[in-house]
Design a protein around this nucleic acid. Structure first.
Length: 850
RNA sequence: GGGCCGUUAGCUCAGUUGGCAGAGCACCUGCUCGACACGCAGGGGGUCAGAGGUUCAAGUCCUCUACGGCCCACCA
């Protein structure tokens, strides 16, 4: 009957064996002939290919795979691609080190470039196209290691659908998408105050800011009333910005300062006349209750500057050093130009920290610093990739309207968020908080050497003025282009950067401007519209919660503009993995003490998958070797129990279970199937596993023991039930323990368990309405019989001379239906049922031989 | 400052409409019984963070508090 059941089943080698067979058989290949209604599509997150995958990746990608396997078994054709994110600073660093190069967009493409290698110093500057080529080369190499890990973990990805985020296809989608926004008036360029990283010398977006606690100090500083009637004291943590001060501001209701509103004060050291203004944003509780407004110290300054219609006096340069300013002209007026110039000369060229040190000395000398600075720690804004505090400087950038300044758009985006099914549901709140907290449009231009270029040129008039507002566009079929390499129609290369010629946009786009188009990139919206029509809108976006405000929000925004709809129906938000010491998150590579490759080799893929399945959507989980052990034990148990069941023999398909104990088990199986199915439909795979596991252990510990004897004797009902149950249980476990279940399936079934139909209660209609109390009562009695033997320190095969079961009439009736099985399982010679209000079993063991 | 999640056995966690507190691990005691010693059977172990409220009945619903974690914030 089952010649392929091994004598001693083992988990060893299953990963290599089945990963290879699945790939060879195309088990997970997407059948693109199926219509959208029969497809389940996944917008897979592309891991950054800058180093190594960590336990967090393993966990969250397993969640997605479990989900994919479920829907595949439900009969849907699953579109499960993989992406590689090579458009990120991490990759830039890795490429730079690996090949010994840096990216310089001003250089021409060199077709014969030979990178110098890891130890080159200085590193060789190469053109942007060359750098992109090296990036793709490295990605291809790292991809191999990533593929090996994903493959042995058992991800049911269709590897013929992969994408990168800097490759030509992504660049084309990204640039086309940008031009589309331009057409729709959703993208615009403006010269405006910009959140600026002085280390990388680039603008950054609101979504990429983070606070860090920094040491600072309140400096109490005197401003002088212009009418000579005394001083006004402000407190500031940034005295070096006094030369950039354009006004003082206090709350309109603040009686202390109401007399000052509308008057003028002069700044210390610089003698600049600035107005005193009222604005409700000013907090009477903070500092002295009156603040200086500088252009620009923080985001509040920008708000005040805009709403109070103040002038700009910018002092901060792109490199974070104070720039020279023209005192006495161009608006930089002072009551004492000579003094202002003298003081400022002490600051110009210094960075913020150095300038602060010097100006404090100058203020102390002039007597305008009151008392000693009071040390504090306070949150300071950083770019998440940066190491120096952000500044705000004014320059030209490209923006995408994101609802930050448009209540109607904001409401539409909130509505998209309400329609999206979040798993867990409370993650929606993060999205809503973010959308409601947007303070401006999305700045997508970055002054970085590497990235997808903004695909525009600008005409230069004969007088040298650049026409920023009338960009020159490439033809749609020419994309992707690099404006530092390509030339706009009607011009030739000799006119680059010449009066009467053109200049290329020097900037690249925010990486999120490309990755927010992952649905279009991987679905082939431009080059394979047929495919796109079968996968969009996607069923699932799996991702972590830390990038709701970036990847998720931006993808919703882009889809809103491109399609007027949500890009997916469901968003499954995974948690983080904690290190075993429960202190650190293994969020970034290098922080994980356990390499996933080592973990997989040590415990086996099913064990790792089992652990990962314990992490519910949105919940953080610890990296727990104990869970690996339990998962491994479960997988082995499945092998052994299956071997046992299949070795007992088979019956014809036509024979239906009929014994009450058998029907009771099937009744429970029906409940489990219904619960697991409902849980999966709600993306609660953890519950589905827990229900299945619970049934399986009851099956092994109680049912199997009860029917063993009957099955040995060839009882058709028992044999049929065992095989029916095994088939269903293997399929219920298949999304989780993909290797062990496939191995067992191959012993006695055709095809892959992963393409087998998900179990349905309809398969078990023979047990519809069956009473499962027979099994419950029998299990209770069997437990008492075992207990008697255990407490007597006797073996389980010790015969029982006489056992008396006390129980209610109703339960005794159920027990009688299992009498034969109870006698055999308990080795009971004389089984007596006695009615009683309380359950008890009295067992008399055969006397010990000695 | 606003918001979200959590607090149940030594550990990791279930506990879905309110109805006798659960699992696994760890620990203890046994068992080499015709699937499995990578196993099996049994056992001890909890004031469900605290207080108040609703209810015949609260781990579960409401209010407040404490602690932990996370997100957001205009942080002078």
């Amino acid at each position: 009957m089952s010649p392929t059941v091994p004598e001693k089943p083992s988990l060893e080698g299953l990963e290599e064996k089945w990963a290879a067979r699945w790939e060879a058989a195309g088990t997970y290949r997407f059948d693109r002939s199926r219509p959208r209604s029969e497809v389940y599509s996944i917008d897979t997150p592309p891991p950054t290919v800058s180093g190594a995958l960590h336990a967090g990746h393993v966990c969250s990608y397993t969640h997605t795979d479990i989900t994919a396997r479920y829907w595949r078994m439900r009969g849907f054709e699953v579109f499960y691609p993989m992406g590689w994110d090579d458009n990120s600073l991490n990759v830039v660093r890795r490429v730079s080190v690996n090949y010994g190069v840096t990216c310089d967009p001003t250089l021409p493409f060199d077709a014969g470039l030979e990178p110098p290698g890891p130890n080159a110093k200085p590193r060789l500057a190469v053109s942007r196209p060359n750098f992109v080529a090296l990036c793709e080369q490295l990605t291809t190499e790292l991809e191999k290691a990533y593929f090996d890990l994903w493959s042995s973990l058992g991800l049911s990805v269709d590897w013929s659908h992969t994408y990168t985020t800097i490759g030509a296809r992504a660049q084309r989608v990204s640039q086309t998408g940008f031009l589309d926004l331009l057409d729709k008036g959703a993208a615009y360029t403006a010269e405006a105050p910009t959140v600026w990283d002085v280390e990388y010398k680039t603008a950054v977006a609101q979504a990429e800011l983070e606070d860090r606690e920094m040491a600072g100090a309140y400096h109490r500083i005197a401003f002088h009333r212009a009418d000579g009637s005394g001083d006004v004291f402000i407190e500031t943590t940034r005295p070096e910005l006094i030369p950039a001060c354009v006004a003082l501001v206090a709350h309109p209701d603040d009686k202390r300062y109401q007399p000052l509103f509308g008057t003028t004060v002069t700044t210390p050291l610089f003698g600049v006349r600035v107005p005193v203004k009222a604005h409700p944003l000013a907090d009477p509780e903070k500092g002295s209750g009156i603040a200086m407004i500088c252009t620009f110290g923080d985001i509040a300054d920008v708000t005040w500057w805009r709403e109070l219609d103040l002038p700009v006096r910018g002092v901060m340069g792109p490199d974070g050093r104070l720039v020279p300013v023209p005192w006495g002209e161009a608006g930089w007026e002072s009551d004492d130009v000579e003094s202002a110039r003298k003081h400022y000369d002490e600051l110009a060229g210094r960075n913020a920290k150095q300038a602060q040190k010097r100006i404090v000395e100058l203020l102390a000398e002039s007597g305008e610093l009151v008392g000693e600075p009071k040390p504090i720690t306070h949150p300071v804004k950083f770019w998440e990739n940066g190491s120096r505090p952000l500044e705000i400087i004014t320059n030209r950038q490209w923006f995408i309207r994101n609802g930050g300044r448009d209540p109607e758009l904001r409401e539409q985006l909130l509505e998209h968020g309400r329609q999206l099914r979040w798993h867990p549901d409370y993650m929606r709140v993060r999205y809503e908080n973010w959308v409601n907290g947007l303070t401006g449009d999305w700045n997508i231009s970055r002054q970085l050497p590497f990235g997808v270029p903004i695909p525009l040129w600008y005409p230069i008039a004969d007088d040298g003025v650049v026409g920023w507002e009338s960009p020159l566009r490439p033809a749609a079929d020419a994309l992707p282009i690099d404006p530092s390499v390509h030339v706009p129609a009607g011009y030739d290369e000799s006119q680059r950067d010449q009066p009467g010629g053109f200049t290329g946009d020097p900037n690249v786009m925010d990486t999120w401007a490309t990755s927010s188009l992952s649905p279009e990139i991987v679905g082939g919206s431009l080059d394979d519209p047929d495919l796109f029509s079968r996968v969009f809108p996607y069923d699932l976006r799996p991702q972590a919660h830390d990038i709701i405000r970036t990847w998720l929000f931006y993808t919703v925004l882009r889809s809103h503009y491109l399609h007027g709809s949500l890009p997916w129906a469901n968003a499954a938000i995974s948690g983080f993995v904690f290190d075993p010491d429960r202190k650190k998150l293994s969020k970034s590579a290098g922080n994980s003490p356990d390499d996933p490759t080592v973990l997989l080799a040590a415990h086996g893929a099913d064990a790792i998958r089992y652990w990962a399945a314990g992490g519910r959507p949105g919940a953080d989980i610890p990296l727990d070797p104990n869970q690996f052990k339990i998962g491994r034990r479960l997988a082995i148990k499945i092998l052994n129990a299956s071997r046992f069941v299949l070795g007992l023999g088979s019956v014809d398909d036509g024979i239906a279970p009929s014994a009450p104990v058998d029907l009771a088990l099937l009744a429970r199986l029906r409940v489990t199937i219904a619960e697991a199915t409902r849980a999966f439909d709600e993306y609660e795979y953890t519950r589905a596993l827990e229900r299945t596991e619970s049934l399986f252990w009851a099956f092994c510990d109680d049912y199997l023991e009860l029917v063993k004897g009957r099955a040995y004797q060839g009882d058709a009902s028992a044999l049929a039930t065992l095989r029916i149950t095994l088939s269903a249980v293997l399929r219920l476990f298949a999304p989780f323990l993909s290797y062990a279940t496939e191995e067992v399936w191959s012993w006695w079934q055709e095809g892959s368990v992963h393409r087998a139909p998900w179990p349905a209660v309809e398969e078990l209609s023979v047990a519809a309405g069956a009473d499962d109390s027979v099994l419950a009562v029998a299990s209770d009695i069997l437990g008492e019989l075992r207990k008697a033997k255990t407490e007597a320190r006797r073996s389980m095969k010790t015969p029982i001379v006489r056992a008396t079961v006390f129980d209610t009439a109703e339960r005794l009736a159920a027990a009688r239906l299992a009498e034969r099985d109870l006698r055999e399982a308990g080795v009971v010679a004389d089984l007596i049922f006695s009615e009683s209000s309380a359950f008890a079993v009295d067992a008399e063991l055969e006397p010990a031989a000695d």
